[in-house]
Design a protein around this nucleic acid. Structure first.
Lengths: 227, 227
DNA sequence: GTACGGGTTAAGGAGAGGTTAAGATGGGGG
DNA sequence: CCCCCATCTTAACCTCTCCTTAACCCGTAC
């Protein structure tokens, strides 16, 4: 199945806790950047593309609620898990109101943190083996895509690209992200992606009335059923 | 596509609790079906298309873990929130391992249940950060603007300008501010902004009865629905 | 009149994106 | 062992969108 390494950010000013978390994550094969204050954390989030963010609330410079609110206002939908000792109902409701996706109370078990992060960073939920958008179905077990029930003949690379796109649907995915998830770190220095997109589009939308693969100028490509 | 009412399923054998939850959800404008045992619940999930499922674990016929595992095996990615009195770490880990998206321990606050459900179903339906004025919607993740639900075809620059204007709405934004936020410090020495405003107005208000983009003489431009 | 704030239009160029074909690669079947 | 096939990479070339620029147009204020 599709397991590039997760890339997280931990924003936490308690350095002991931070190193403990990061070491634990590394054992699980998860990469984790760290920032000790709110505004630096926000900058990192804006600059990089994390799969999820673990956000403490009591932070110097800018507190966690402000960080979360700010990044949501800028249109980022990176999953955010708030991590805090504040355990009243109102604290939780505040957190969710500012755009959190999950809220875990200290002290917590590392295993629970990991598993909640894993769930969050799978954009489409669960161990679902079939993803669908409109009349397009992606069967991950069969490694096969269908439109209106008829199988599409896709190359392995095209399939992988479609997988990434459909998980992000209806949001666009940047070229960089696509290249990252197809080739990892040693990327071809040519316009290979262009060719793959062309082939994918041909097989996916070629003889269909309803076009699903759209290019979003300046931002990348998106799978969606409205224009 | 836009905020239709949420449609949930609650699988819970404690009838008192179930009616309490359902009544509370109704007050929030959320529709909720109910099933009192596992296998009936599973059938409902397979038949209908719920936005999320609230799943008790101790159930007659088929327990919650089995229900969740089974529906994941059948390729459904509906968000599942497990609701149970079992509060040990291993219980939680089991729940997530079977495909849960969230795990809430009884007794719980209704408000927290609601807000967690809202987050789960929002992620899945891709609805997210949106700025709106009247019938104009700016979806920051899709990088797409809508009027009355139909997508507008905006250039990247036009989109950026609209973003600034809509955040300031209903207040006007000066030309200098607009130029600053589009081009930063090296600005074109021509009337480029004028042209972009013209194009934005054409695409935004061109064939609409209700004009949203107004010129505030001497002060710049404003997005608002009353002139 | 003319100067000014604002609106409208069209041309041109740069660059993003689309298309095509040829060679490289690599695995499976004869 | 060799050939065939699907796939991937590369590079060349084409198309078209988007941005800039510079016109010109219209009112109103001076």
């Amino acid at each position: 199945m599709f397991t590039d390494k997760l890339q997280l950010l931990l924003v936490e000013d308690d350095l002991d806790l931070a190193t403990a978390v990061i070491e634990y994550l590394e054992l699980e094969g998860i990469l984790c950047d760290h920032s000790a204050n709110g505004s630096a954390g926000l900058n990192l989030i804006l600059l990089n593309r994390y799969d999820a963010v673990i956000l403490d609330l009591n932070l110097p410079k800018m507190n966690g609620l402000q960080v979360c609110e700010s990044l949501r206002l800028q249109g980022l939908d990176v999953p955010v898990l708030m991590l805090t000792a504040r355990d009243t109902l109102n604290d939780k409701l505040d957190g969710f109101a500012k755009g959190a996706d999950d809220y875990l109370i200290k002290p917590f078990a590392m295993e629970e943190l990991i598993v909640r992060i894993r769930v969050l960073s799978r954009r489409r939920s669960g161990q679902a083996m079939r993803l669908t958008v409109a009349d397009l179905i992606l069967d991950l077990q069969q490694k096969q895509a269908f439109r209106n029930g008829v199988g599409l003949k896709l190359s392995p690379t095209a399939f992988k690209i479609l997988d990434v796109l459909i998980r992000a649907s209806p949001n666009p995915v940047s070229r960089e992200k696509l290249m990252q998830s197809v080739w990892g770190d040693d990327q071809p220095d040519s316009n290979s992606l262009k060719v793959h997109m062309f082939n994918l589009r041909k097989h996916l939308d070629g003889n269909q009335e309803l076009k699903l693969l759209h290019t979003v100028s300046g931002h990348g490509f998106a799978i969606k059923d409205n224009q």
